[in-house]
Amino acid sequence: MTFTRPKFRHPDLPPNALGYTRRDYEGALSTLCAGCGHDSISNAIIQACYELPLEPHRVVKMSGIGCSSKTPAYFLGRSHGFNSVHGRMPAIATGANMANRDLLYLGVSGDGDTASIGLGQFTHVVRRNLNMVYIVMNNGCYGLTKGQDSATADRGSTSKKGAPNLFESIDLCELAIQLGAGFVARGFSGDKIQLVPLLKAAMSHKGFSLVDVISPCVTFNNTNASTKSYQYVRDHAEATGTLDFIPLRQEITTEYQEGSTQEVPLHDGSVIYLYKGEGARDITNRRAAMDSLESHRVESRIMTGILYFQEGIEDTHEMIKTSQQPLNALQQEDLCPGNAALQQLMEGYR
């Protein structure tokens, strides 16, 4: 096994608007199984950050425990990161976000990390609309501990172990919409054409964005009877519409046909263009989104793309009125405004 990746890259790698090449967003060589969907998602993250573009040092990677939670080591090697305990990534992300609201928080978790041990943490971070991107690398099993069924495994789906799953599955997207998330999307690790713009849009959204990415575990859950296998997902996935993400300030060069395209502006001036297929619905309608997810589920279809989108929801900072400035930028005068200010405050309580 080769444990090093050659240092050479394509000689024509173009720099992005910030002067970085794709290489500047790479991380260490992955130690996951060959063919793991998670590696593809890592690469989609690299691509999205490069294309947006983001400054690597303004990104914070947060994760829990699992093969999925290991991936932050394999992308954005020049960003900040914290690999926390199982299911507790949301708490750590919340703390960090409270301390410094100016960075981009990229939470990476698994279906076990999120829907089993971390379900409580997940629901609350959604409710609070923490300004972060929450990526679930969803393989329907606990890959790291040898493939036990997870809470997102569909009832009847059968992993390598051979016994069909007995329990009802949790749909994280439905849950997030119900709990008030403003950006909810589903992708597939095997389709970067869709996944990269999904991630870019999620990274540009202010507030909580969930990107649930179906990511086959080639080793334990890529069987013919699994609903999280490459083949099953390819046969059953249905996009809400192909999409294009045009970041702020970037010239729009494609011509968009009127009527068939939904234009979704983001707070920072970026725009999502959705080319809707037949029978498409408005992605900003919460009830329609829930209905659509349900009806697809009944027909064993997997809906992908942006499932629900709502701008302008207050995020945690706005709800609890925190300092506008990152804590590390506060000066002594800000933190200790002196006796006069104290007296004024006390006056308010009399």
Binding site: R5, F8, R9, H10, G37, D39, N43, G190, P216
Partner: peptide, 14 residues
Amino acid sequence: CIECDACVDICPTS
């Protein structure tokens, strides 16, 4: 090939 993209992702020179 199952089109998992692993080769695409690992190839140093794209």
